[in-house]
Amino acid sequence: MTLMSFEKRWAHAGLSAIYPERAHGVRVTFDHVDASLDETMLVVPWRSGMGLRIAIWMVALSPIWLLMRLGTIASVRAVDRQRALGRLISHRNYFVRQLALLFKAFGALWVFRDVKLREAVLRRGERLITLKRKDAGHAA
């Protein structure tokens, strides 16, 4: 099972609402998302692939049924994307909520393939600085 290009566009738009491109100096890129979507659809069983596709369609059409906006997730403003995704994630219907969480979880796996993003979030350097300060304190 493969995704169509418009489905990938919807996935991009949905993910950009969950993981906005710029926040706190952390730059999120979506360079790996297309390839990851293709690979994921190839690796997972048919049923899981269908679940992911339904999640993407649900996200895509969420502005219509949650915000009463005529347009897909890719065509509404960034603030409306976030509103729509926010409502999906906390929706009272269990299946809607689970599909939205599935989309968010897979999005995290794809987005964090970016080494720069990972390093920016981990901030390993800070830990080393803390350790050096501690060592210096002990030496003194």
């Binding site: 609402a17 969950i18 993981y19 906005p20 926040a23 706190h24 952390v26 999120v28 976030q82 995704l85 926010g86 994630i89 969480l101 968010k104 979880a105 995290a108 796996l109 987005v111 964090f112 990972r118 979030v121 981990l122």
Partner: peptide, 17 residues
Amino acid sequence: PELCAARMPGIGTELMD
């Protein structure tokens, strides 16, 4: 981080915070 992001509440700027 990716598993943590999936587990953290919220989306968008709240999640990035």
